[in-house]
Design a protein around this nucleic acid. Structure first.
Lengths: 338, 338
DNA sequence: ACAGGTTGGAAAAACGATTGGGCAACACGA
DNA sequence: TCGTGTTGCCCAATCGTTTTTCCAACCTGT
C-alpha cells in the first residue's frame, strides 16, 4: 500500500485549494459558499488519492474520541456476555462509534487503573456491565464521564441502566405452564439473594394469583444455580407425595439438573413432567432431549439500548424514554412443556 | 471532577519550566541533562495537578496508537471466544496496549469497511480471528498493517498464526481411553471438512497405531457437529454387533448426543460405555451426569500468544519462536471414562 | 464612479504532545 | 582575557485536523 498516509494537505495540493476548503467540502459544513465545481474537484481528488481523514487528528482537535468502553467484571467468558457485547458492538458501529472492551476480574484496583488509562485515551463514555443482574456502585475513577449501566442497577437513579424484567420473565414462564393446564407448578429458585431471584419469584406468584391458584411455599425450593443444585432441588420436589406436574427452573443449568432427576425417577418429559428454564442457553436448551422450553434474556437488546442511550447522553441530547429500563424476556417455546 | 483536563502546559507553568522539560522529565528521556531538583519540581507538579498525558495528542505526534483490533467472524457469541478475548485482553493490558473488538458476521463488505475505519484510527495491528479453526485469506483492506491469525491459518506462511494442535488433541483423547483398557474405540467425527476433523482423526489413528490397535473404518462415523448429529452417530455405532466400549466425540455437544443414545439403549456411562468429548464447554461437561471427560481448547493461551506476537512484530523486534504455532490441548479428566 | 452587499475561498490559530537544534551561563585551562 | 567545553534548559516545528476570522473580487443600483 501507500508508504505514507495521504493527508488533507495532499488533497488540498492536488485539488489546488486550501486545506480549509477541503475540510469544508468533505464535511459538508453548512453555510459555506463554495462553488459546485470546486466541490467536485475536491471530492474527486480525495477519491483519487484514497484520502481517509485521520481520526486521531480530528479527535485531538475536537476533544473527543467517538470511542466507548465497556467495563465488565468477567463478562466476556459467558455466552450471554457474547450477545450483550454483540448488541453493543453493532449499535456502536451503526452510529459510527468504536467500542473497547475491558475485563476487570473483580479487581477494583486494576479496574481503577484501566479506567484511568481509558480516560487518557479520551474515551467518551463508559458502559459499566456485570455478568449477571445485580446492584453496583460506580467506581470513583469514572469521574464525570457519561456512563450507562448494563445488566446492573445503581442506587443512584440519575445514571441510566438497563436490566431484564425479571418479574415479567418469571410470570411468562409460569403462565406458559398454566396455559397447558398445570396447577401444581414447582419453582426451583436460586439460593443467592439477587434481583433475579426476587423478581422471578414475584412473577411466579403473580401468575399463580392471576390464575386463581394458591401459592404453596412447599413448591418452591432453592438451590445453587448449577446443574447439581437443580438436580437436588428437583429430587426433593418430585419425590414428595402430590408432586408437582411442572417445574419452572431458575436457569437452564438447573433445568438440566431437573432433567437428570426426572430420569432417575423414571419420569418422562414432557409426558409426566413439564419443564421451563430460563436464560435460553442454546448449548443446553438445544442439547437436552426433549429440547427445553425456556425464557430468553434480552442481552442483545440490552447491549444495544445501553449504547444508544450512552451516545445520546454524550451528545447532550435529551433522553426521551425513562432512564432506568427493564427489557422483556420473551418465551422460547421448545418441547419440554405439555 | 476537573472542568478542563490538565495538559502538559499547565504542569510546565506550575513547575516554572518549559513543556519540553516536562516531557523530558516525565518520559525519562535518556541523555537529557536536567538537574535532580528540577526533575523533582516537575514530578511534584504533575502529581499535584493530577496530570495524565493525552494519548490522543501523543498518538498524533508519534503516528501510532498502541491499539490493537481483533476482527472476528462471529466470535463474541461463543463461550470459547470469551476465553480467547480474555487472553488477548489481558496480554494487551499487561503490555500497556488497548484492544478493540469487531465482529463482522461473515459480511466481507462490512468487514472491509470496519477495517478501514480502524485504520483511520491508526490501529497498529490486527488480530484476525475465527470462531473455529479454519483456513482464511487475509482481506485486502488490511494492507500492510501487521497482523496475526488467531485460531486460523493462512496459506501465506509469512503471517504468524496460532491454532490448537488438533492432532495431538485427538491423540490425547484416544490415549485416555486406551489407558483405561479400551480396544474398540468409536470415533464420532465432524462431517465438515475442516482442519479439526482431519487433525483429530489423524491423532486418533496415531494413538491406535502406537498401541498396536488396528484402525477399523466402521468405528468412525461422521455427523453434524451438534447434539443431534452425535445422537445419530452414536445410535449407529452402539447398536452394531460388536459395539465399541468407548466413544471419542468430536465435541462436547456431540458427546451430549452420545449420552442420549446411551440412555436410549440402556447403556450406563461409564460402566458400559466410556465417553470423551472435545472443547471443554463447561456448560455441558459439568452439566452432564456423569460429568464429561474432555479435551480443552487452549483459547486463552492462543489469545495471549497472538497479542504478544503481534506486539513484538509491531515494535520491530524479531520473533524468537516459530511463526506458526500449534498449542497443546490438555485433557480435562472428569467421570465419563472407566 | 462609488458605496455597499455578496461570493468564494484562504490564513492562521488552536488541540496536546515529542524532539532536533540552539543558546545562554558557567567552568576551566592557557 | 580569550577560547573551548559542558551544563541545563528552552524554541519552535511537527503530527492532521477543525474553525474563526478575514479579504479580495465581483456585482448592483444610483
Amino acid at each position: 500500500m501507500s508508504q505514507r498516509k495521504v493527508s488533507i494537505k495532499d488533497v488540498a495540493a492536488h485539488a489546488g485549494v486550501s486545506v480549509t476548503t477541503v475540510s469544508h467540502v468533505l464535511n459538508e459544513v453548512p453555510g459555506k459558499r463554495i462553488t459546485e465545481s470546486t466541490r467536485d474537484r475536491v471530492r474527486r481528488s480525495a477519491g483519487e488519492l484514497g484520502y481517509a481523514p485521520s481520526s486521531v487528528a480530528r479527535n485531538l482537535r475536537l476533544q473527543r474520541s467517538q470511542m466507548l468502553a465497556m467495563i465488565s467484571d468477567e463478562i466476556a467468558t459467558t455466552p450471554h456476555a457474547g450477545r450483550m457485547i454483540l448488541g453493543a458492538q453493532e449499535a456502536a458501529s451503526k452510529a459510527g462509534w468504536l467500542l473497547m472492551l475491558v475485563n476487570t476480574g473483580f479487581d477494583s484496583e486494576f479496574e481503577a487503573a484501566e479506567i484511568r488509562a481509558l480516560r487518557q485515551r479520551q474515551v467518551d463514555g463508559f458502559l459499566y456491565a456485570t455478568m449477571y443482574h445485580r446492584e453496583v456502585v460506580l467506581p470513583e475513577a469514572i469521574g464525570d464521564v457519561p456512563t450507562v449501566l448494563l445488566d446492573a442497577r445503581s442506587n443512584d437513579a440519575s445514571v441510566p441502566s438497563v436490566v431484564p424484567d425479571e418479574v415479567r420473565g418469571g410470570r411468562t414462564a409460569t403462565e406458559e405452564l398454566i396455559r397447558h393446564g398445570h396447577t401444581r407448578i414447582g419453582f426451583i429458585n436460586n439460593i443467592d439473594d439477587i434481583p433475579a431471584k426476587r423478581g422471578r419469584l414475584a412473577g411466579y406468584r403473580a401468575a399463580l394469583d392471576d390464575a386463581g391458584l394458591a401459592f404453596d411455599q412447599r413448591l418452591v425450593v432453592d438451590g445453587r444455580s448449577e446443574t447439581e443444585g437443580g438436580l437436588q432441588a428437583a429430587r426433593k420436589l418430585l419425590s414428595a407425595t402430590d408432586r408437582p406436574t411442572a417445574l419452572f427452573c431458575f436457569n437452564d443449568r438447573m433445568a438440566m439438573g431437573a432433567y437428570h432427576a426426572a430420569a432417575e425417577l423414571g419420569l418422562r418429559i414432557p409426558e409426566d413432567l413439564s419443564v421451563v428454564g430460563f436464560d435460553n442457553q442454546e448449548l443446553i436448551a438445544d442439547g437436552l432431549r426433549p429440547v427445553l422450553t425456556t425464557v430468553a434474556l434480552p442481552h442483545y437488546e440490552m447491549g444495544a439500548w445501553a449504547v444508544e442511550t450512552l451516545i445520546t447522553q454524550i451528545e447532550g441530547r435529551e433522553l426521551s424514554g425513562p432512564r432506568q429500563v427493564e427489557l422483556n424476556c420473551p418465551l422460547v417455546p421448545r418441547n419440554s412443556v405439555a
